[in-house]
Each structure stands twice: as structure tokens, then as C-alpha cells.
């Protein structure tokens, strides 16, 4: 269970990036966080993880083993203990590409075994079997011996989920887990996260309102560092417009195809030679 109270983060000039964020995540919930770019979604997650230090407020994690962690203030050993209880999935997968898939899953347990044993790669057979089980859950057990760098994005994200599952956390945090995946992989990842949430709460940042509407049990929307919505995942068009503003159309439909050079030259008055004296930065108009 996670309880965030009045979380604030300010820039040196005093501008607030997070302005009193408060919410709770309880057992059985799959909470999706929506918001325009720069609204403070990922920053909230980073503050909870302790990757960025919040200026004020608290984030309290009540772990399954009964321990309580004050996430915004704990450091060193306490922070490592807290982190081992949170399984994190990143947008860029962030796996160690030169290790095998199974090794990346094993990394999930590092905080739970003696450092010396981990240095000697002394994972037990039981742990290895469990890691394989985690891979089976994301349908990647066949890839256990492959080098992680040879996998596709969707496959890497599955491995990242397996790592988080193997970690046996009290809370899953997902920072835009499907933002760099194609639609079919995105769907597959959401379908993997949904059943996880039934056992362990998931707090995820997303850019796709249609995905959160379909899979999440609750949606939180952040705008300019404040929570502007917290409730039912199905948001109306008017609500989305309020959350995203000008970005709305980019969120609701795919971005238009990039302009080809032909398109550019058709509209550009600068068709002709490149002026070398400016290092080619400016096109020289022929007269």
C-alpha cells in the first residue's frame, strides 16, 4: 500500500513542478497516471522511488511484510530496503543488454541475497527455477539463454516485467511502460500488467487514455503539478481536453507522418544552393 501526501518538488527558481500531490494506492488497484508532457507524472514516480529527492510531503510504503518505509527521506540501506519492495518497469526497458535474459531477471533479487553470494553468481536452483517461472509468466521462458540485447523492444519489456515479478515487490511502479512500443506490443504489456495488479498494486504512468480506460481500475490525472482528477478510468472527451489542453489531439490520434524532403522543397522559398560560408546552415537563394 502506498500513501502519498502533499508531495512537492520545486525548481531552484521556486517554480513548483509538483504542487501538493496526494493519493493512495491500495491492494487490488491498477492506477494509471495521465497528464500532458511535463505535468509531473514521471517526476512523482521518481520521487516515490527516491531517484529524485522531493522538497516536501511524504510518500509512505506499507510493505507486505508489515514494514513501513518513508520513501522521501530514507537513504542508504533503508532506501535499498524500500526499493527492493518496489518492482519498477521503465519506458526504455533499461536492461543490461550484454547479460542473458535470465541474468537480468536474477537482478531483481540482488537486494535480497548477500552481496558476496551475488558477486559469485551464487543463485540457488530454487531461485533459478523461480526466475524461469517469472519468465514463463510473460511468455519469455524460451529466451532465457538469449543475450538481452538481441531482443526486440516488446520482448525486453516483458523481461523487465519478469524481473519485477521475480523481485516479489509490494508495489509495482511503471514509468510509461508502453510509450516506446507499437500498439500490439502495448496491448500485450497491458494484458500482462492487469493480472499482476490483482495480487500487487500497480502504479503506472501512461500516455494513452484509451489504454488506461480499458485496463486500469482507477485513473489519476496531473496537470501543472497538481492532481486534477482521481477516479473512474473512463474519462470523457471534455475531461481529457482539460487534462491535455493543446496536446489532446496528439494523444487521441497518431502523429501525422513526417514531411519528406520533397514536401519541404515544394513550400520552401530557399530552393537552391547551400551557402558554404555559413557552414551550410542557411540556404542561399539563387538570383
Amino acid at each position: 500500500m502506498l500513501n502519498v501526501e502533499q508531495l512537492t518538488k520545486k525548481l531552484p527558481d521556486g517554480r513548483a513542478l509538483l504542487d501538493g500531490i496526494s493519493f493512495r494506492v491500495s491492494r487490488g488497484e491498477f492506477v494509471g497516471v495521465l497528464g500532458a508532457s511535463g505535468a509531473g507524472k514521471s517526476l512523482t514516480l521518481r520521487c516515490i522511488l527516491g531517484l529524485t529527492r522531493a522538497d516536501g510531503g511524504t510518500a509512505t510504503l506499507q510493505a507486505n511484510d508489515g514494514q513501513t518505509f518513508e520513501l522521501t527521506t530514507c537513504k542508504g540501506r533503508c532506501q535499498r530496503e524500500a526499493r527492493r519492495r518496489m518492482g519498477v518497469i521503465f519506458q526504455g526497458f533499461n536492461l543490461v543488454k550484454r547479460l542473458r535474459v535470465i541474468d537480468n531477471v536474477m537482478i531483481g533479487r540482488l537486494a535480497q541475497i548477500h552481496p558476496l553470494r551475488s558477486w559469485l553468481y551464487g543463485f540457488t536452483d530454487a531461485e533459478a527455477a523461480e526466475a524461469l517461472e517469472a519468465l514463463r509468466r510473460v511468455k519469455m521462458e524460451k529466451y532465457a539463454d538469449r543475450t538481452t540485447g538481441s531482443l526486440s523492444g516488446g520482448e525486453m519489456q516483458r523481461v523487465a516485467i519478469a524481473r519485477a515479478v521475480f523481485q516479489k515487490p509490494s508495489l509495482y511502479l511503471a514509468d510509461e511502460p508502453i510509450a516506446s512500443l507499437d500498439p500490439s506490443n502495448s496491448l500485450a504489456i497491458m494484458k500482462l500488467l492487469q493480472p499482476l495488479a490483482k495480487e500487487t498494486p500497480v502504479l503506472g504512468v501512461f500516455h494513452q487514455p484509451e489504454m488506461t480506460a480499458r485496463f486500469c481500475t482507477r485513473v489519476i490525472a496531473i496537470k501543472h503539478g497538481k492532481i486534477v482528477y482521481d477516479g473512474n478510468p473512463g474519462l470523457s472527451h471534455a475531461q481529457l481536453e482539460d487534462i491535455y489542453g493543446d496536446e489532446l489531439m496528439q494523444v487521441l490520434r497518431p502523429a501525422p507522418a513526417a514531411l519528406t524532403p520533397e514536401d519541404v522543397s515544394a513550400v520552401s522559398p530557399f530552393s537552391g544552393r547551400i551557402d558554404e560560408s555559413t557552414g551550410g546552415l542557411l540556404a542561399k537563394q539563387t538570383t
Binding site: L51, R80, A82, V88, N94, G108, L110, A111, Q112, P115
Partner: peptide, 9 residues
Amino acid sequence: ESVGSVGAT
């Protein structure tokens, strides 16, 4: 950062 996020030393 990702390896650190599991609580690794």
C-alpha cells in the same frame, strides 16, 4: 539506475 532501483548495492 534501473539495477539500483531493485535495491542493489
